[in-house]
Design a protein around this nucleic acid. Structure first.
Lengths: 221, 221
DNA sequence: GGTCTCCCCGTCCGAATGGACAGGTGCCGC
DNA sequence: GCGGCACCTGTCCATTCGGACGGGGAGACC
């Protein structure tokens, strides 16, 4: 267990594909990995579609994946992660991303990722993580691990809103009056008050100003 | 003007220092720049203090600077930028950062930066930008340029609040009622209404819910 | 002294809000 | 069909809020 972790492994080198929309980062990773004799970069991709094709062609054992691809939606990276791990069960996907979002860590794991490392890490820790996922282990840097722990905690369960309530909430969060919301949604002011009351009940707050505050914390705005 | 932009310049190579807290990014930049005969990386730094020392020692002509250094505060990168350009008037600082913040573009320029490029750019555009700032020109990628234009527009000048109004605004932004704000600040509810009215007048809004919305946009919360 | 800003406090009133009660409609699953 | 859910609408009432008037005091600046 201790001896098998030598840099110059007797087995074949790990075949790695880099997926990142930043050319700079891809270059950086390549130059870091090229110095390691047990690691070999066999492909690069900057988009999800490209990544799928490259993996199909090169059959790597490891994919270093930045969830944040050019489109801006994290979901694209997550879906790519799911697709890759489904089609290639043995494939180790190590998420390597810039920012740390608690929910994103969990989502990444749910979508088949084997590790999560932020780009802040130094090269030795990065290499350690790569070799860990290559051995079918998991790898998290300390920040990502903390995020995992946080998201494990049972939270005061975010209230669920109906479709209509969400529409009202968004307008309410922008400071509109009941009358204006009604005009916007083509419903009576009375109905707006009905929804606002339900929203406040679900949020457990006592004024519309508080609703706006909570909504801003939730990112509704 | 067209002929002098050849890659293999007859003059001495540009001496470049990389400042970025991400080792991966530094490696990437180095590997990109090392292929160019007119560009030479003479130093790297991951912190502001380190950067100041390296620049002092190596006397580069160009600094590629990521404003976001490890501490998390953008101000550190800005201050470093100001310090470098003050002490070395000829030095060209090209800000190379991950995310685009309209105000940050302007601030960077104010602090002496000669260009602003997000890391999304491909290598050719990055090299073009580097060579531009080396020629005492400016360089902005399209996104940063758009941010500049946006921030050029005369804005409805953010209202200035008195100290007392700020206190009230913060509590108001958390959804508290006038009575509760009064209790919190040991003043009468009437006085709170006085301040709230002034706040709403300055913000040009008509309800406290709107105040909360605006405050959340302003980052008061 | 005069002027200014900021802060404090009051009254009065119309409008908006918070909260309760009592309905009606349409859709879905059992 | 029947219950449950989401959605819509109404009335009634107490409280709060928004906005208008008024006033006073402390400190800074000229």
């Amino acid at each position: 267990m201790t001896t098998e972790r030598q840099t110059t492994a007797p087995t074949a080198a790990q075949r790695i594909v880099l997926v990142d929309d930043h050319a700079i980062v891809r270059h950086g990773l390549r130059s870091i990995l090229e110095r390691e004799s047990d690691l070999e970069v066999v492909g690069e991709a900057s988009t999800a579609a490209e990544a799928a094709a490259v993996v199909e062609r090169t059959h790597p054992s490891i994919v270093l994946l930045d969830l944040k691809l050019s489109t801006g939606a994290d979901t694209e990276g997550l879906e790519l992660c799911a697709r890759l791990t489904e089609r290639h069960p043995g494939l180790a996907v190590l998420v390597l991303t810039t920012f740390l979002d608690d929910s994103l860590v969990v989502e990444a794991i749910r979508h088949g990722a084997r590790g999560y490392v932020v780009k802040d890490v130094d090269t030795t820790e990065l290499l350690r993580s790569i070799r860990a996922v290559a051995r079918n282990e998991s790898a998290f840097d300390s920040h990502a691990a903390a995020a995992m722990v946080r998201s494990m905690r049972v939270q005061p369960e975010q209230p669920r809103f109906t479709e209509r309530e969400v529409r009202v909430l968004k307008l309410l969060a922008r400071g509109l009056s009941n009358r204006d919301i009604g005009a916007e949604l083509y419903i009576s002011e009375t109905t707006v008050k009905f929804h606002v009351r339900n929203i406040m009940r679900k949020m457990d707050v006592g004024s519309r100003a508080e609703v706006v505050y909570e909504a801003s914390k939730m990112g509704v705005i």
